Computed example of a mutant assay.
Amino acid sequence: MKLARFTAGGHTRLGKVVGDSVVDLGAVLPGIGDSMRLLLEQLDGFRDAIEAVAAPAFALADVMLEAPITDPGKYLAIGMNYQSHVDEAAAAGVTAPKTQIWFNKQVTCINGPFGDVDVPRAGPDKVDYEAELGVVIGKRCRHVSRDQARSVIAGYVVCNDVTARDWQFRSPTFTLGKSFDTHGPIGPWITTDDEIADPHALTITLELNGEERQRASTGDMIYDIYDQIAYLSEVMTLLPGDLIATGTPAGVGIAGNRFMKAGDVVRVAVEGLGAIENRFVDEA
Protein backbone atom coordinates (compact mmCIF):
# COMPACT_ATOMS: atom_id res chain seq x y z
CA MET A 1 0.00 0.00 0.00
CA LYS A 2 0.89 3.62 -0.45
CA LEU A 3 -0.43 5.56 2.55
CA ALA A 4 -0.72 9.33 2.18
CA ARG A 5 -1.95 12.46 3.88
CA PHE A 6 -3.70 14.81 1.48
CA THR A 7 -5.77 17.97 1.49
CA ALA A 8 -8.90 18.33 -0.62
CA GLY A 9 -11.71 20.82 -0.20
CA GLY A 10 -9.93 22.44 2.73
CA HIS A 11 -9.77 19.23 4.76
CA THR A 12 -6.69 17.07 5.41
CA ARG A 13 -7.30 13.33 5.39
CA LEU A 14 -5.55 9.98 5.29
CA GLY A 15 -5.66 8.08 2.03
CA LYS A 16 -4.23 5.23 0.01
CA VAL A 17 -2.76 5.96 -3.40
CA VAL A 18 -3.94 3.73 -6.23
CA GLY A 19 -2.62 4.63 -9.66
CA ASP A 20 -3.44 8.29 -10.35
CA SER A 21 -5.97 8.59 -7.55
CA VAL A 22 -6.08 8.67 -3.77
CA VAL A 23 -8.85 6.93 -1.81
CA ASP A 24 -10.16 8.68 1.31
CA LEU A 25 -9.76 6.33 4.29
CA GLY A 26 -11.81 8.34 6.76
CA ALA A 27 -14.81 6.01 6.74
CA VAL A 28 -12.74 2.97 7.73
CA LEU A 29 -10.46 4.67 10.28
CA PRO A 30 -12.71 5.82 13.14
CA GLY A 31 -10.95 8.02 15.66
CA ILE A 32 -7.74 8.33 13.64
CA GLY A 33 -8.34 11.71 11.97
CA ASP A 34 -5.38 12.66 9.79
CA SER A 35 -2.64 11.32 12.10
CA MET A 36 -0.47 8.82 10.28
CA ARG A 37 1.27 8.03 13.56
CA LEU A 38 -2.01 6.86 15.10
CA LEU A 39 -2.73 4.77 12.02
CA LEU A 40 0.69 3.11 12.12
CA GLU A 41 0.16 2.21 15.78
CA GLN A 42 -2.93 0.21 14.73
CA LEU A 43 -2.09 -0.67 11.14
CA ASP A 44 -2.32 -4.44 11.53
CA GLY A 45 -5.91 -4.13 12.74
CA PHE A 46 -6.94 -1.75 9.97
CA ARG A 47 -5.08 -3.36 7.07
CA ASP A 48 -7.94 -5.48 5.71
CA ALA A 49 -10.38 -2.54 5.74
CA ILE A 50 -7.84 -0.25 4.07
CA GLU A 51 -7.14 -2.77 1.33
CA ALA A 52 -10.87 -3.28 0.67
CA VAL A 53 -12.07 0.33 0.51
CA ALA A 54 -12.30 1.84 -3.00
CA ALA A 55 -14.28 5.07 -2.57
CA PRO A 56 -14.49 7.98 -2.30
CA ALA A 57 -11.50 8.68 -4.49
CA PHE A 58 -9.85 11.89 -5.71
CA ALA A 59 -7.53 12.43 -8.65
CA LEU A 60 -4.00 13.03 -7.39
CA ALA A 61 -3.85 16.04 -9.69
CA ASP A 62 -6.73 17.62 -7.74
CA VAL A 63 -5.32 17.28 -4.21
CA MET A 64 -2.34 18.56 -2.27
CA LEU A 65 -0.12 15.83 -0.91
CA GLU A 66 1.06 16.66 2.60
CA ALA A 67 3.96 15.25 4.60
CA PRO A 68 2.85 11.65 5.18
CA ILE A 69 3.65 11.96 8.88
CA THR A 70 3.99 15.20 10.82
CA ASP A 71 4.10 14.01 14.43
CA PRO A 72 6.76 11.30 14.80
CA GLY A 73 8.35 10.92 18.20
CA LYS A 74 11.82 11.00 16.65
CA TYR A 75 13.52 11.90 13.38
CA LEU A 76 16.99 10.32 13.40
CA ALA A 77 19.58 10.45 10.64
CA ILE A 78 22.89 8.73 10.05
CA GLY A 79 25.90 10.61 8.71
CA MET A 80 28.57 9.50 6.24
CA ASN A 81 26.88 6.21 5.37
CA TYR A 82 27.80 5.86 1.68
CA GLN A 83 31.45 5.25 0.83
CA SER A 84 31.24 7.68 -2.08
CA HIS A 85 30.15 10.44 0.32
CA VAL A 86 32.89 9.48 2.80
CA ASP A 87 35.41 9.77 -0.03
CA GLU A 88 34.25 13.23 -1.14
CA ALA A 89 34.26 14.41 2.49
CA ALA A 90 37.78 13.06 2.98
CA ALA A 91 38.91 15.11 -0.01
CA ALA A 92 37.72 18.16 1.92
CA GLY A 93 39.62 17.11 5.04
CA VAL A 94 36.75 15.50 6.97
CA THR A 95 37.82 12.38 8.86
CA ALA A 96 35.84 9.23 8.14
CA PRO A 97 33.89 7.92 11.15
CA LYS A 98 34.77 4.53 12.60
CA THR A 99 31.24 3.80 13.88
CA GLN A 100 27.67 4.73 13.01
CA ILE A 101 27.27 8.50 13.49
CA TRP A 102 23.76 9.67 14.43
CA PHE A 103 22.09 13.05 14.85
CA ASN A 104 18.58 14.41 15.33
CA LYS A 105 16.50 16.40 12.94
CA GLN A 106 13.96 18.12 15.15
CA VAL A 107 10.48 17.10 14.01
CA THR A 108 9.42 20.72 13.42
CA CYS A 109 11.62 20.62 10.30
CA ILE A 110 9.20 18.24 8.57
CA ASN A 111 7.84 19.58 5.31
CA GLY A 112 5.57 18.25 2.58
CA PRO A 113 6.79 16.51 -0.56
CA PHE A 114 6.16 19.61 -2.68
CA GLY A 115 6.40 22.37 -0.07
CA ASP A 116 8.73 25.34 -0.34
CA VAL A 117 12.02 25.10 1.57
CA ASP A 118 13.34 28.22 3.27
CA VAL A 119 16.73 29.75 2.73
CA PRO A 120 16.69 31.05 6.31
CA ARG A 121 16.94 34.70 7.22
CA ALA A 122 18.98 33.64 10.29
CA GLY A 123 22.11 33.95 8.22
CA PRO A 124 23.13 30.55 6.80
CA ASP A 125 24.50 31.00 3.32
CA LYS A 126 25.46 27.36 2.84
CA VAL A 127 22.14 25.53 2.57
CA ASP A 128 22.64 22.09 1.03
CA TYR A 129 20.62 19.08 -0.16
CA GLU A 130 21.02 15.38 0.67
CA ALA A 131 18.96 12.72 -1.13
CA GLU A 132 18.06 9.88 1.24
CA LEU A 133 15.89 6.82 1.65
CA GLY A 134 13.72 7.20 4.74
CA VAL A 135 12.52 4.33 6.92
CA VAL A 136 9.32 4.58 8.98
CA ILE A 137 9.14 2.40 12.09
CA GLY A 138 5.91 0.42 12.48
CA LYS A 139 6.22 -1.33 15.84
CA ARG A 140 7.37 -0.35 19.31
CA CYS A 141 10.67 -2.13 19.80
CA ARG A 142 13.89 -2.31 21.80
CA HIS A 143 17.00 -4.51 21.48
CA VAL A 144 16.08 -5.58 17.97
CA SER A 145 18.46 -8.04 16.35
CA ARG A 146 19.59 -7.52 12.79
CA ASP A 147 17.57 -10.58 11.79
CA GLN A 148 14.42 -9.11 13.38
CA ALA A 149 14.88 -5.58 12.09
CA ARG A 150 12.75 -5.81 8.96
CA SER A 151 9.76 -6.95 11.01
CA VAL A 152 9.54 -3.55 12.76
CA ILE A 153 9.52 -1.48 9.54
CA ALA A 154 6.18 0.00 8.46
CA GLY A 155 7.47 1.39 5.18
CA TYR A 156 9.63 3.88 3.33
CA VAL A 157 9.61 7.51 2.19
CA VAL A 158 11.77 9.74 0.03
CA CYS A 159 13.73 12.32 2.06
CA ASN A 160 15.79 15.41 1.42
CA ASP A 161 17.97 15.98 4.48
CA VAL A 162 18.33 19.72 3.88
CA THR A 163 21.31 21.03 5.83
CA ALA A 164 22.54 24.49 6.79
CA ARG A 165 26.23 23.63 6.63
CA ASP A 166 27.53 26.69 8.48
CA TRP A 167 25.20 25.97 11.42
CA GLN A 168 26.02 22.25 11.21
CA PHE A 169 29.70 22.86 11.89
CA ARG A 170 29.27 25.47 14.64
CA SER A 171 28.81 22.91 17.40
CA PRO A 172 29.86 19.33 18.24
CA THR A 173 26.42 18.03 17.25
CA PHE A 174 24.72 18.54 13.89
CA THR A 175 21.24 19.18 15.30
CA LEU A 176 20.93 22.93 14.68
CA GLY A 177 22.22 22.74 11.14
CA LYS A 178 19.84 19.91 10.36
CA SER A 179 16.67 21.27 11.95
CA PHE A 180 15.60 24.58 10.43
CA ASP A 181 11.85 24.73 9.83
CA THR A 182 10.94 23.34 6.36
CA HIS A 183 14.32 21.53 6.07
CA GLY A 184 12.79 18.05 6.26
CA PRO A 185 10.70 17.44 3.14
CA ILE A 186 9.47 13.84 3.01
CA GLY A 187 6.99 11.84 0.97
CA PRO A 188 5.26 11.66 -1.33
CA TRP A 189 3.61 8.88 0.72
CA ILE A 190 4.62 5.89 2.86
CA THR A 191 5.14 2.82 0.71
CA THR A 192 4.59 -0.15 2.99
CA ASP A 193 7.39 -2.65 3.40
CA ASP A 194 5.50 -5.51 1.73
CA GLU A 195 5.64 -3.63 -1.60
CA ILE A 196 9.45 -3.45 -1.65
CA ALA A 197 11.26 -6.70 -2.43
CA ASP A 198 14.65 -5.42 -1.26
CA PRO A 199 15.14 -1.93 0.21
CA HIS A 200 18.85 -2.28 -0.47
CA ALA A 201 18.39 -2.58 -4.25
CA LEU A 202 16.80 0.77 -5.07
CA THR A 203 18.19 3.57 -7.22
CA ILE A 204 18.24 6.98 -5.55
CA THR A 205 18.72 10.19 -7.54
CA LEU A 206 18.70 13.93 -7.00
CA GLU A 207 18.29 16.66 -9.61
CA LEU A 208 19.03 20.34 -9.05
CA ASN A 209 17.18 22.52 -11.56
CA GLY A 210 16.85 19.49 -13.83
CA GLU A 211 20.55 18.54 -13.67
CA GLU A 212 21.37 15.22 -12.01
CA ARG A 213 23.69 15.70 -9.03
CA GLN A 214 23.35 12.43 -7.10
CA ARG A 215 22.81 8.82 -8.21
CA ALA A 216 23.48 5.64 -6.27
CA SER A 217 22.05 2.31 -5.20
CA THR A 218 20.76 1.97 -1.65
CA GLY A 219 22.88 -1.19 -1.63
CA ASP A 220 25.92 1.09 -1.38
CA MET A 221 25.22 1.91 2.27
CA ILE A 222 28.10 1.16 4.64
CA TYR A 223 25.66 0.24 7.43
CA ASP A 224 22.46 -1.10 5.95
CA ILE A 225 18.95 -0.46 7.29
CA TYR A 226 18.91 -3.54 9.51
CA ASP A 227 22.28 -2.65 11.06
CA GLN A 228 20.95 0.83 11.74
CA ILE A 229 17.78 -0.36 13.49
CA ALA A 230 19.71 -2.88 15.58
CA TYR A 231 22.23 -0.21 16.62
CA LEU A 232 19.66 2.45 17.50
CA SER A 233 17.42 0.05 19.40
CA GLU A 234 20.28 -0.84 21.73
CA VAL A 235 20.04 2.74 23.00
CA MET A 236 16.39 3.72 22.76
CA THR A 237 12.88 2.44 22.25
CA LEU A 238 11.76 2.97 18.68
CA LEU A 239 8.09 3.83 18.25
CA PRO A 240 5.56 3.61 15.41
CA GLY A 241 6.04 6.63 13.17
CA ASP A 242 9.67 7.28 14.08
CA LEU A 243 11.66 8.34 11.01
CA ILE A 244 15.16 7.19 10.11
CA ALA A 245 17.10 8.84 7.28
CA THR A 246 19.64 6.31 6.06
CA GLY A 247 22.40 8.46 4.58
CA THR A 248 23.27 10.25 1.35
CA PRO A 249 25.64 9.34 -1.49
CA ALA A 250 28.26 11.54 -3.16
CA GLY A 251 27.29 14.70 -5.00
CA VAL A 252 26.16 17.01 -2.21
CA GLY A 253 26.44 20.73 -2.80
CA ILE A 254 29.26 21.37 -0.35
CA ALA A 255 31.55 19.07 -2.35
CA GLY A 256 31.37 21.48 -5.27
CA ASN A 257 30.80 24.66 -3.23
CA ARG A 258 27.31 24.98 -4.76
CA PHE A 259 24.68 25.95 -2.21
CA MET A 260 20.98 26.59 -2.50
CA LYS A 261 19.56 29.97 -3.41
CA ALA A 262 16.02 31.22 -3.86
CA GLY A 263 14.51 29.79 -7.04
CA ASP A 264 16.44 26.51 -7.02
CA VAL A 265 14.31 23.38 -7.41
CA VAL A 266 15.48 20.04 -6.01
CA ARG A 267 13.87 16.74 -7.00
CA VAL A 268 14.69 13.54 -5.11
CA ALA A 269 13.47 10.15 -6.37
CA VAL A 270 13.81 6.64 -5.01
CA GLU A 271 12.95 3.69 -7.21
CA GLY A 272 9.58 2.23 -6.26
CA LEU A 273 8.74 5.03 -3.83
CA GLY A 274 8.08 8.05 -6.05
CA ALA A 275 9.62 11.49 -5.89
CA ILE A 276 9.51 14.75 -3.97
CA GLU A 277 10.24 18.16 -5.47
CA ASN A 278 10.83 21.34 -3.51
CA ARG A 279 11.52 24.94 -4.46
CA PHE A 280 13.91 26.96 -2.29
CA VAL A 281 12.66 30.41 -1.33
CA ASP A 282 13.88 33.26 0.85
CA GLU A 283 12.29 32.95 4.28
CA ALA A 284 9.57 35.57 4.77
Rank of each mutant, 00 (worst) to 15 (best):
A4Q: 06
L14Y: 00
K16S: 07
G19M: 12
D20P: 07
V23L: 11
I32F: 00
P56T: 01
V63S: 04
L65H: 12
L65P: 04
E66K: 14
I69N: 10
L76I: 09
G79W: 13
V86E: 08
Q100Y: 11
Q100S: 05
I101N: 13
N104Y: 13
N104L: 13
K105P: 00
K105S: 00
I110F: 10
G112F: 12
D116G: 08
D125L: 09
C141F: 10
C141L: 06
S145L: 04
A154P: 00
V157W: 12
V157N: 10
C159W: 12
C159G: 02
D161V: 04
R165L: 05
Q168M: 09
S171Y: 11
T175Q: 08
G177V: 05
K178E: 01
G184F: 10
P185V: 05
P188V: 02
T191C: 12
D194K: 14
E195S: 05
A201K: 15
A201S: 14
L206M: 13
E207S: 13
N209Y: 06
N209W: 03
Q214W: 13
T218C: 09
M221S: 09
V235G: 14
M236T: 08
M236I: 10
G241S: 07
D242K: 00
T248F: 08
P249I: 02
G251V: 03
V268I: 01
A269L: 03
I276S: 03
F280M: 03
D282H: 14
A284Y: 14
